[in-house]
């Protein structure tokens, strides 16, 4: 049992957050949100992974073969579907913002504040 995948997940989470906080470009910012998202993929997959076990497809293997946990994989797939929607929406907002504000730099968007 290796701790490496968990360390990778934590690292991705932290650099993603750092990227969002310090970003000067909305496209870059949305991609950083995607990096945080990847961290949850790594986390979910590493929770379900067991060294030496097979993929959970029981078409031509005995039903009692030890397999990796399919539930977290299903969670991850669902998560991908959900998050693609959100990332697409965020990117389209960024495109619209570029149209209306003429900039992608969040430092220069100061229409709402206070």
């Amino acid at each position: 049992m290796s701790y490496l995948p968990y360390a990778v997940a934590a690292w991705l989470f932290i650099v993603g957050l750092y990227g969002v906080i310090s970003s000067r470009n909305l496209i870059h910012l949305v991609i950083c949100v995607g990096v945080i998202q990847s961290s949850s993929y790594v986390l979910l997959l590493s929770i379900g992974y067991r060294a030496g076990r097979v993929a959970p497809i029981f078409a031509d293997i005995p039903a009692n073969t030890l397999a990796v946990d399919p539930i977290v994989q299903a969670l991850m797939l669902t998560d991908i579907v959900v998050e693609v929607t959100v990332i697409a929406l965020l990117l389209s907002l960024a495109v619209q913002i570029h149209k209306r504000h003429g900039t992608l730099n969040p430092d220069r968007l100061m229409k709402v504040s206070g």
Partner: peptide, 20 residues
Amino acid sequence: LQGSLNFAVTNTIGAYFVLS
């Protein structure tokens, strides 16, 4: 657009917290 972006980014990060 700006309000919506602020809303979307913060709440999406919240959703990753929940999922993790």
